Amino acid sequence: MDRLTLDLNLKHYLEENKDNFEQYLLNQAVNVKDKINDILRVGDIDLINNAHTLTHYIIDENTKDLSAFAKQEGIAWATFSLTLSFKLEWIQAIRRTLWIFIQKYNNDIQPISIDSFFELEKQINNQIDYFLNEFFINYSTYKDALISSQRKVVEALSVPIIPITPSICILPLIGSVDTFRTSILEEKVLTEIGRLHIQTLIMDLSGISEMETEVIDHLLKIIYGTSMMGCGTVITGLRPDVVRQMIQLGVKFDDDTKTFATLQQALNEYLVK
């Protein structure tokens, strides 16, 4: 029997025993079988139907569609942050189940010659390994892109520079400010001053819940940098504990930096007048 005929016969045999194949597959995938409905609900991924699709591509040695399918699956699993160990267990369960049914075909339908068997073994295992490789490459690539995109959004939200006139902007800082955030702050502030031609930056610190000692020194350097770019800095809402830290460290703002107790006072000074 030539390989083409064998492949067609195997496909036909698997179709005839579809329900039995699924039962064997679920028994092989011990940890995944209880998660099938969750994965379908969260990611709209039908593991059972996908298993049949994958086996057809493998037996047909359809590398083009197999690659596209692996990319589709990799992106889907990355998008919905599905557990990779489940995917790996599922694919290995498909591999084992497929070989179980090839053995059944050999025993119950028609013996497979030694040469055909070794060719089939190479084809099936190579195709499954190729699928896994393509899946993980696409998963990693898309996941990295998602993380990068989300990080940019977080960075933008953590430094919200708000224009209120063509030359005046407000930078309200909220939450905890650490050294990582001040690094983002420095880059964003200097970039936006140049891009928006900001002449006055009102930096409101009233929403800061915690500030590391190193951050105060970094903040002073940012203020100095804005001054070098021709932008005046106005500080509002300094908390008493931050002021005490500055006094203990012996640091102070330069004479060009203005301070107000509240943001409202600064707005009255720069907008109302």
Rank of each mutant, 00 (worst) to 15 (best):
A51I: 09
I59Q: 06
Y105F: 15
S148T: 15
D60P: 05
Q72D: 12
H56G: 07
A68C: 01
Q127P: 00
Y57Q: 08
A70G: 01
F136L: 14
I128S: 03
F117P: 01
L84E: 08
T141Q: 10
T141W: 00
F69M: 10
E89K: 02
L132I: 15
D65A: 05
Q150V: 02
D65S: 09
Q110R: 13
N107V: 12
I75E: 11
N133V: 05
W90I: 03
T63L: 12
G74M: 06
L120P: 09
A70M: 02
S148N: 14
H52V: 10
F80K: 04
Q127R: 13
S149M: 11
T83R: 08
N106T: 09
Y130K: 13
L82P: 01
I45W: 10
I94M: 08
I124N: 07
L98H: 07
S81G: 00
F135M: 06
I137H: 11
N107Y: 13
E121N: 14
I137W: 08
F80N: 08
A78S: 15
T83Q: 11
R95S: 14
N126V: 03
Y57C: 04
Y142T: 10
S148Y: 12
I124H: 03
K143E: 12
I58H: 04
V154R: 04
D144V: 04
A51N: 09
Q127N: 15
E121K: 15
S116A: 13
I45H: 01
Y139P: 05
Q72A: 07
D108H: 12
F118G: 00
D60S: 09
Q103W: 06
E134K: 11
W90T: 04
L82M: 13
E119C: 11
I109D: 07
A68V: 01
I48P: 06
